[in-house]
Nucleic acid binder design. Sequence first.
DNA 1: TCTCCGTTATGACATTTGTCACTGCCGCGT
DNA 2: ACGCGGCAGTGACAAATGTCATAACGGAGA
Lengths: 202, 202
Amino acid sequence: MTIRLLLADDQALVRDALAALLGLEADFEVVASVGRGDEVAAAAIACSPDVALLDIEMPGLDGLAAASVLASQLPECRTVILTTFGRAGYLRRAMEAGAVGFVVKDAPAEVLADAIRRVMKGERVIDPTLAAETLAAGDSPLTARERDVLIAARSGGSVADIAARLYLSEGTVRNYLSYAISKTDARNRMDALRVADERGWL
Amino acid sequence: MTIRLLLADDQALVRDALAALLGLEADFEVVASVGRGDEVAAAAIACSPDVALLDIEMPGLDGLAAASVLASQLPECRTVILTTFGRAGYLRRAMEAGAVGFVVKDAPAEVLADAIRRVMKGERVIDPTLAAETLAAGDSPLTARERDVLIAARSGGSVADIAARLYLSEGTVRNYLSYAISKTDARNRMDALRVADERGWL
DNA sequence: TCTCCGTTATGACATTTGTCACTGCCGCGT
DNA sequence: ACGCGGCAGTGACAAATGTCATAACGGAGA
């Protein structure tokens, strides 16, 4: 009984390489392979895979959003997130999006193959180091707006720019930035951005 | 006549997957596979590959530095840089480090295989889009110190922090930052950092 | 109902940042 | 010998940033 796989990764070379790697295993069959998050659902419906391997960073729709869509439209297909970044916040969001597995690209090939077989048996598979880290980082203390302001600050604009983009007054933006800076124990907005990003709070 | 390959990529899964992919081609043979830049030279000397495929982001020594070492210690081995980021500055630095090929991971698998065969024939292989972009971005207008200051600014510290780290006066740091901001047409240091990073000037 | 929290906002304030002018030193090329 | 450009610094100034107190409004929960 072969396990039917869907592969989603924006980097064609990595996608093809993973297909080659998984194709070496006798019990795996790659039935679909896409390079954009917004193509995942359609491909899954067309090919009805047993397991979808989704990268997070993809154009169109990110892997986490794609996992949500997949969970609602094709609940019998299990999702494993396969990503470069073992960033704490990703794991939490992946679980919320209905993923049952989470593997980082640092892991050796056997870990991935093993993870796929285990999710097929109904288990949840999560990188243990990452799980610990996620628990340690904890929930984001940032409110929704504080997060919005930080994200808007990422492009390097001034308070005025951010205020204009979010339709807020400049004073309000300064307040939110100040809160964010204090909650992240940072010294200024760049530092806050760096810290929040590392902790997966954005 | 098979082409002997050395593979270097910090992500084990990607490394193994690439090995599987390249192994499917009849004329390729992966003779070494490492996960750290500082293991490249030793592995190359031990296995004498014809072509080394190096990722840029690696612990120990980055792919560009590893390419330099390889070029001096084992000049008969040709280097192809294989990286996620088609960032303009990387290409220039790769060429300076003695690489003869540059392939982005966005490219389809045939491009990589083709590139390997072509560098074996003595050709240089460079992603054409990227080449154009690199020429457009041009040489970095930043002086060595301006670059240092920008890099130090990346960790999110204040002028005082940067000055302390580089053993400069605060005024000097402010001047360099100001020059950097003006040379990048940015609005503030974050913007300058973003721009310089994108252009590969760091 | 009353209180807490998040959102939005203002004004005042100190600090930091960015800009500019100007100086001196050193090394390189003509 | 001279000028140019990079490096390092000072001082002054305007603008942006970060902090704090304070306040109004609405929703969620005790």
